[in-house]
Design a protein around this nucleic acid. Structure first.
Lengths: 206, 206, 206, 206
DNA sequence: CATGAATGAGTTTTCATTCAT
DNA sequence: GATGAATGAAAACTCATTCAT
């Protein structure tokens, strides 16, 4: 009656499969990755995958949700002990800077392919917009706080500003998806930081 | 021994095929579009397609190159008779505003899917970056002009600023790929315009 | 624009595929027959089959419907010029006798497997009962005519009697599905004929 | 070194497995039932099944043999204390009537599917015909007795008549496999009883 | 002993590409 | 030249059976 392998074992295996699959997806893309690719990469059998996930698509969706959830959660965690709005936004830019272009490209290609995939599937579209909404709301709250404390200019539309913040970030990442060196990218982030602060602070942002 | 069909006929047909294929690719994506879809949409034979293009992939690549070239060319054309940098940039924002979300989404999904596709193929990556470079250079020249005339603040890095410009534009489009209404999107463009002008003008952008 | 092969060619091919598939289904059963079996038997490609039929199941269903339709139609045709009820029923028994056990077994195993298959699929169940209903109605009409002309006893329930007629026929076939010689089977039909006539005629059936 | 588990325990378990498997086979059919279905239904492990049966097929065959044996044995038992042939045959009809259509359908689909299965395997065909032979012989003996006592008409061929008896019964069941209500079915049995008695009794069966 | 995770050959179905007509 | 039927190599997914724990 009792299972021969522990719950922990199963979760570990499940995680290992997801990781292996992610590796393949980032390398070749979701559509182009075959289940055989994943199987070969992991050195397990096809059946093993299907005993943990009901389809290739399910793996993909869970993976995307894990990623999105993790991102939002980790940010929320970080910010518990960071009161100033300015500081928080600076922290976010620091985080962007901390990511190498290599990592960024992997993350971004996964992210974009999934968006395109979700865009054709109403069921996923909604799921996705919820997550995107969380990220927007997250920065929006920071901005609102900053507006109340007077750190940020009072006539901002916090929601709009949050959207713009993410637009700049995502758009910049997009610029460097295909080409560019880490140093250039770092400078571009610096400059985008300036633009954003010029926009959210009163005066000329200096 | 004149050719049975004129050169013009062939070019027309070729263009018609590309157009039909583009329609399908934007609707379902490159990978998900079958040659049969295209054939059905165009009402021609499979053989016809393969006598103009050697593979589905080739159609895709040519199409993407056409699109990219057309965008850059059309902008260049427009600007011959528009001297002021500020005016030109305003014109660009106007153009963004002029595009409905529906059109934007179609264009964007094609664009993104192709970027992802190109990202895995060195040969295409280079081609793509050339095009992207043209768009950057294009706005960069506008900014440089503006800096010289004093319209824009003198301490800008024109190349960086151009990149930021496109980042904002692309990032904003990305925000609205999956969800959002046309009016919201219009307001977001307005706001991004403000942010960009705040950044490129001296003072607070007002 | 015009197809390169005639409509007749396509219908012929379609029929050939159905015939080949039927051969395999009768030999191994529907579930046990693989598409590869059919392909191998016909010497065509897998794709060819799927360009004529959308699935293995569809082939099966069409085949069954053809068979059922053909049976009912052929009987109806025969009987246009056969006025007497007794004569008609005798003719039916003659027809049963005319079929060799080999043929019967093929027909019956196909028939039974399809019934079982249909029994698990509500959509097919209805289709099937319609056909079965036709066969019942067919004999029922014969019986009703016979009752009116006085050939058959007046206190029969024509519908019930028709059902019994087919029960005897099907049940007998079932008896010989697995074993038995043609001669025995012929005698059994003779005897069943006697039983049925004893039942539908007045008196003792002699 | 006595066995860890008693012989009785093993037999019980074995029987329980067969019963659970039967439940699944009647519900979905042999081919469509997976070992996982059985395991899930019984709440035991896959290994347990394979320690009692060497394959899914073996379970199926044993099950069928058990069923067939049980049917014949139970009838033989019942009839020890029932002298009259007429009474015995009436009893058989009563038994048929006693079975609901639901039960009948389950029994019949199992029975038919196994016949079809056996029809393709010479080894099973023989086994099956032995059992079928027992059922025939069983009714045949009743008829012979009846003929001797003068209950039934003297010019019957007892073997043939027995076959016809079963034909009527099986054929009728077949009629109601896919559709029909219990009441109709009951009436059909009544009527088939009349037909059979008309046939085996002297005169007009009244 | 019992368990159930793992295996991998086998299944149906798809679709870019070819080539006889 | 144009056509579209035919090809067949993949692809995703299933499931009877095994065997390490």
């Amino acid at each position: 009656m009792s299972p021969k392998v522990s719950q922990a074992y199963k979760e570990g295996k499940r995680a290992a499969i997801l990781e292996g699959a992610l590796h393949c997806f980032t390398e070749k893309g979701f559509q182009a990755t075959t289940v055989d690719d994943i199987v070969r990469h992991l050195g397990i059998s096809k059946g093993a995958i299907y005993s943990y996930f009901s389809s290739k698509e399910e793996m993909y969706i869970e993976m995307a949700e894990d990623k999105m959830g993790a991102m939002v959660d980790s940010l929320s965690e970080q910010f518990k002990s960071m009161p100033s709005a300015k500081e928080r936004i600076l922290y976010l830019f620091g985080r962007f800077r901390g990511q190498s272009l290599g990592e960024l490209r992997q993350w971004l290609s996964f992210h974009l392919e999934f968006m395109l995939y979700a865009a054709r599937q109403p069921r996923l579209t909604e799921r996705w917009t919820q997550y995107a909404g969380k990220a927007i709301a997250f920065v929006q709250r920071i901005i609102e706080t900053g507006m109340q404390t007077g750190e940020l200019r009072a006539d901002l539309d916090a929601a709009q500003a949050s959207r713009l913040f993410w637009s700049v970030r995502d758009g910049l990442a997009l610029q460097y998806l295909l080409a560019g060196a880490d140093t250039e990218y770092g400078q571009a982030i610096d400059e985008s930081e300036k633009m954003v602060f010029r926009y959210i602070l009163g005066g000329d942002g200096s």
